[in-house]
């Protein structure tokens, strides 16, 4: 993927915060829900994934969340939709590696690369991972 400038990463985060694509409750049956509540932020989110035949066919979320958790959860939805459960789990793992400043595979996390600087604000790591951890919990037995 092309190298993103800081300005591009800023606008990715702001776009997904101000106009999230997946912030809504599911409009049909068949979704699995995971509730996440942050103890150091007031983030309070429900994450919904729909898995059919080993594939994540849709993902969405709702709740109250700060810029970082809203944008990162929205991008998480983008990243996992259309992936097999194994591919989705791998992407989540790579994202977590990036957040914790470990080597990671940038190709599978797409726009989530915008959160590469999260460790500069260590108190917000929890916000940047809340949606991803929820999805991981839903997918872990799949």
């Amino acid at each position: 993927m092309p190298t993103l400038t800081n300005e591009m990463m800023r606008s990715i985060i702001m776009d997904h915060y101000s106009s999230p694509l997946h912030k809504h409750v599911p409009s049909e049956e068949g979704y699995e829900k995971w509730h996440m509540h942050s103890d150091n932020c007031i983030d309070d989110l429900n994450i919904y994934l729909k898995v059919e035949n080993g594939k994540v066919v849709d993902a969405c979320f709702d709740g109250v969340a700060c810029t970082i958790s809203t944008a990162s959860t929205d991008i998480m939805c983008e990243v996992v939709i259309g992936k097999t459960t194994d591919e989705a789990k791998f992407a989540i793992e790579q994202y977590n590696h990036m957040i914790h400043e470990e080597p990671f595979d940038a190709d599978v996390i797409d726009e989530a690369i915008a959160f590469i600087n999260t460790s500069k604000q260590a108190a917000r790591i929890r916000c940047a991972t809340i949606g991803w951890n929820a999805a991981d919990n839903i997918l872990k037995d799949k």
Binding site: A65, C66, T67, I68, Q121
Partner: peptide, 11 residues
């Protein structure tokens, strides 16, 4: 968002 403001102030 209050958390965002607090992070900005932390910065």
């Amino acid at each position: 968002f209050p958390q965002d403001e607090a992070t900005y102030l932390n910065y």
